[in-house]
Write a protein that binds this DNA or RNA. Sequence first.
DNA 1: TCAAAAGTGTTATCCTTACACCCATGT
DNA 2: ACATGGGTGTAAGGATAACACTTTTGA
Lengths: 310, 310
Amino acid sequence: MPPAANRPRPIAVELNAVLVALIDDEPQVLTLEDGALLPSGPFEGDHPTLQTGLRAWVERQTHHPLGYVEQLYTFADRSRAAATSGRRIVSISYLGLTRERVTASGHEPGWQSWYRYFPWEDWRGGTPAVLSRQVMPRLRRWIDAASDPAARRSRRQRMDINFAEATWNEDLVLQRYELLYEAGLVPEAGGRRPVADPLPGMPMHYDHRRILATGIARLRAKIKYRPVVFELMPPDFTLGQLQLAVEALAGRPLHKQNFRRLIDQQGLVEETGAVSAETGGRPAKLYRFRREILLERAVAGSKLPLSRSS
Amino acid sequence: MPPAANRPRPIAVELNAVLVALIDDEPQVLTLEDGALLPSGPFEGDHPTLQTGLRAWVERQTHHPLGYVEQLYTFADRSRAAATSGRRIVSISYLGLTRERVTASGHEPGWQSWYRYFPWEDWRGGTPAVLSRQVMPRLRRWIDAASDPAARRSRRQRMDINFAEATWNEDLVLQRYELLYEAGLVPEAGGRRPVADPLPGMPMHYDHRRILATGIARLRAKIKYRPVVFELMPPDFTLGQLQLAVEALAGRPLHKQNFRRLIDQQGLVEETGAVSAETGGRPAKLYRFRREILLERAVAGSKLPLSRSS
DNA sequence: TCAAAAGTGTTATCCTTACACCCATGT
DNA sequence: ACATGGGTGTAAGGATAACACTTTTGA
């Protein structure tokens, strides 16, 4: 039917932003209310597109230029309505990347490492302790608590796919969070009454931690085939710094030699000519991103060379 | 700020669906108004989630069970508002897959091959004539029409990335449509006054052809790493039929032997034991999709083995 | 007997992973 | 001198793309 025929009824629309920056080689997100909320606000109907509305609004709130922007997902679950006095809300969430490489000692208030919310996602120092000590045992208990053998088998398989060490896939951030939610192991799963003894990992209000998980998952998948890491880097950088950045996002260590080879084989960067004599050891060549690559190829990203354990 | 503090203002929300079925080995989408519109309607606020709302509404409209469903994108461009008497509209679009393998001679009214809208996307019979005869020459003229050399170079590079025969990437459906739109070669680009001598390929009202392009692009990308083709197949099928289905979606021919190998190496299907004696030639074994695979592996799709030209 | 589609086996090539090693600087 | 990170070369393994060929049916 043509849209003019049955006119949609009014519903409130809000925007949410997962705003990411690399600060001190740590992936950080901009939060409010002591880390319990993502920045969010009403969609102003007077912008030509959603993107420009989002952009204007974020830049007004944060005073930072916003680099890459991408839509994440639109939620309209009834649970949100309940939490906000009954009015139905459609919330459109965005991922935004910004350059905010502050090396100052104290973090700016509002920026939080995303691993505070998902400690089991950080494999840069090997298997995270919280995973083997807490997550896995609790999941196993959840499996055993299933009513019938079929349900138990299904739960076990889902755990294996998403959490097995041997086949860990860093892109499954959202699926893992949703599984933990379903298993009742995160505080947000409780609704009114609190969850008894929840897992480590800071909760957020409403469904904001789910939105954050969506953003992280999307970004982790994206860096593999599009050169978005560079939106988070300073203009000049060493290959070592670039590797640290990718490792921070992907949450796992990379194989140094192969990482370097992949980067320059793909022609993603070019030498500036200068060198940086910073952290101990031999001075490193400085590179910059070759923006032309965006016009040269349809796909080009920082493939992730594996690295066994640490 | 907490959502409760600055309450969003009401805006109309509508749903759009790109509903895909394989009919006579042709990828078809459900349309209204003689193919000029995608099915769309208001978002009913009384469903627990957007997905269930969409599902209920599509099944009511089409009387077909809806298989796989996935959100595509949320648009809220002002251009839409103008087209619908000034009220701001947020439109949330979905991709839906349904099983509708009608081998009847005449097509059901409402189902249209998606290549009617994007004839340059069908490479199953080699390079499409419309591409070399019409699209490329017109794009070249558009390049030459650029004001300065820099703009010309930029246009040329975008054409090369998206349309070059040698490096044709079937996933770039949306980018290609947007480039043609920008170049003023499709009727929708005109606004009030009609575009002079537009390219072949049926236009749609509003931004529905863009939404369709988004859906096709998403589906083409998805079949490579998730086994969604099977949502479009009958319960039992031959490997030949499966290949035809994938070719129809991807819009290009595949290498037979390698396709077969990939499918069973991945354990996506199992023999039913029966054979089908249909189209001339040796009878083919029948297979069915192994649903268990969804629980066994995080990624599993029908990789696309290339095939040089025809 | 031949066309047409099903189905099997093998090879060349490229990309990923891994390992071994040298280089340049500060302490 | 040695610790630290930068930087290079090369070999093993696996996956993809391509080729050649056999099998089983209907006309």
